[in-house]
Nucleic acid binder design. Structure first.
Length: 269
DNA sequence: ATGGCATTGAAACAATGA
C-alpha cells in the first residue's frame, strides 16, 4: 500500500496536477492508494467529486471558502470507502477546516488515516502563532486517545513545522523563526513521544530534501526549501513501512503548488 | 528592513501563506 500527502494550494487550480500525478503513478505501477490533500480552498459544494471518482478515487473532505480545507482520496480498486469519519478535532471549537479522519479496512486490517493542515502561525509574536500552539495542543490530546483506540494509525499532512535544522535549507537564516521555533519543534517531538514515527527519517536520505519551496526568489531553482510535510506512523504501521520519499516531479510542472507530494510504501500485513 | 509570488474574493487591492 502506498500513501501520500500533498498541499495543493487550491484544488480548483491544481486538479489537473492531481489527476496527472495519480494517472502517472498508476501507469508506473506505483499507484497511490490513499492521498491526503490540504489547502483545498473551496467550499464543499465545489469539491470536484465527480472528476476524482472518474479517475478512480473516492473522497472524504471538509472544505472552506478561500482558505484551508482537507481531503482523503482512496483508490477504489484497492481501498474500500472510509468509515467513522471525523471532521476537525473533537471538542476543539474551530471555524477553520483543517482535519478529516477516517478508518479504511485495507488488507491487514483497519487503518486510521488523518489528513491534517496544521496552522501556519505567521510569526512568533502573532495571534496566529498562539492559535497554532493551541491547535497543536488540542491535536496532541486527541491523538493520544486516537492512538489508544487505533493501533494502526497514520497522520499525514502539512505540519508547517520543519522538525530539525537538516530540514531547513539555511538554518542560520531561519533560526528562531516561524516554522522552526523551539515551541513548534517541541510540539512535533511530543507527537513522536506519543509513538508516532516520521516515516521519512526511518530511512537514509540524501541531504537537502524538502517538500516546500517559496514561489519567490526562484526558491525551487535554488532548492531554498523546507521539509514541512510529513507522514507520521504509529509503531504498528512503522514496522510495515518499506520506503518514504519526496516526489519533486509535480513541483517542476507548469503552475505548480508550492508543495510537492511525500509518499510512503507499506507492506500489507 | 522590505518585498519578492500565488491564490482568493471582489472588482482595487487586502489577506494569507511559509
Amino acid at each position: 500500500m502506498r500513501v501520500a500527502t500533498w498541499n495543493v494550494n487550491s484544488l480548483k487550480v491544481r486538479l489537473p496536477h492531481v489527476l496527472q500525478w495519480l494517472a502517472q503513478r498508476e501507469a508506473d505501477a506505483t499507484p497511490i492508494d490513499l492521498l491526503c490533500l490540504q489547502e483545498l480552498k473551496l467550499p464543499d459544494d465545489r469539491y470536484p467529486l465527480a472528476e476524482l471518482d472518474a479517475a478512480g478515487y473516492s473522497s472524504l473532505f471538509t472544505g472552506q471558502k478561500t482558505y484551508n480545507g482537507v481531503a482523503i482520496l482512496a483508490r477504489k480498486a484497492s481501498v474500500p470507502e472510509g468509515r467513522d469519519v471525523v471532521k476537525n478535532i473533537p471538542g476543539f471549537d474551530d471555524e477553520q477546516q483543517r482535519i478529516v479522519a477516517a478508518t479504511y479496512d485495507v488488507d491487514g486490517g483497519p487503518v486510521r488515516v488523518i489528513s491534517a493542515y496544521i496552522p501556519n502561525g505567521q510569526a512568533l509574536d502573532s495571534d496566529k502563532f498562539v492559535y497554532k500552539l493551541r491547535w497543536l495542543e488540542a491535536l496532541q490530546a486527541w491523538l493520544t486517545s486516537e492512538l489508544a483506540a487505533n493501533p494502526r494509525l497514520m497522520l499525514l499532512g502539512d505540519f508547517n513545522i520543519a522538525p530539525e535544522d537538516r530540514d531547513v535549507h539555511d538554518p542560520k537564516k531561519w533560526e528562531g523563526q516561524n516554522l522552526v521555533s523551539p515551541e513548534e519543534r517541541a510540539a512535533f517531538r511530543a507527537m513522536q513521544g506519543a509513538g508516532l514515527v516520521d516515516a521519512f527519517r526511518m530511512f537514509e536520505q540524501e541531504d537537502k530534501l524538502f517538500s516546500w519551496w517559496d514561489y519567490r526568489m526562484f526558491g525551487f531553482k535554488r532548492n531554498a526549501g523546507l521539509r514541512i510535510d510529513h507522514i507520521m506512523l504509529s509503531p504498528e504501521l512503522a514496522k510495515l513501512c518499506e520506503s518514504c520519499h519526496i516526489d519533486r516531479v509535480p513541483r517542476t510542472w507548469d503552475q505548480p503548488s508550492d508543495h510537492t507530494p511525500v509518499v510512503a510504501a507499506l507492506r500489507s500485513a
